Simulated assay, not measured.
Amino acid sequence: MNIVVCVKQVPDTTEVKIDPVTNTLIRQGVPSIVNPFDKNAIEAALQLKEKHGGTVAAISMGPPQAKDALKECLAMGVDEAFLVSDRAFGGADTLATSYTLAAAIKKLDQVDIIFCGKQAIDGDTAQVGPEIAEHLGMAQVTYAAKIEVEGDHVRIEREHEDGYEIVGAKLPLLISVVKSINEPRYPTVKGTMKANRAEIPVLTSSDLDIEAGKIGLKGSPTQVRRIFTPPQRTQGMIICKETIHETVEELITRLSEAKIV
Rank of each mutant, 00 (worst) to 15 (best):
V4H: 07
T24R: 14
P20I: 10
G151C: 07
T22A: 14
G213Q: 04
R158F: 05
T125K: 09
R254Q: 10
A58M: 05
L70M: 11
E165N: 00
L217R: 05
I227Y: 10
T94V: 10
I147E: 08
E165Y: 02
K118P: 00
A66V: 08
V34Y: 04
V5N: 13
K107D: 15
S176M: 11
S98F: 06
K146Y: 02
G219R: 13
P20G: 07
I239M: 01
G151R: 15
E183A: 04
I114N: 14
R158N: 03
F228D: 12
A75V: 11
S205G: 02
G77P: 13
M237I: 09
E148T: 01
R197K: 15
V128P: 02
I260D: 11
E257Y: 09
E159A: 02
N182K: 06
Y186L: 08
I252P: 00
K106D: 15
A145I: 06
A198I: 01
E80I: 15
Y143I: 00
Q235P: 00
A58F: 11
Y99T: 03
A81R: 01
A92L: 10
P64M: 13
T142E: 14
T142R: 01
K118N: 05
D207T: 08
I175K: 06
D68W: 00
V4F: 12
A44W: 01
A96H: 11
V34H: 06
T229A: 06
A96S: 13
G117Q: 01
G129E: 01
R87K: 08
G219W: 14
A144W: 03
K259G: 09
D68E: 12
E50K: 14
H153C: 04
S256D: 13
R27G: 12
L25R: 03
T234S: 02
Y143L: 09
P63H: 02
H52M: 09
L208N: 07
D79Q: 05
E250R: 12
G129S: 00
L217E: 13
I215H: 13
Q110I: 10
A195K: 05
V7E: 14
I227H: 06
G53C: 13
I227P: 03
I114H: 11
G219V: 07
A45Y: 06
T97P: 02
I200T: 14
I244F: 08
L217Y: 10
Q65S: 15
H153M: 07
D162V: 03
V154G: 06
K214P: 05
R254D: 02
G90D: 15
A88S: 12
K214A: 05
T94P: 06
G137Y: 03
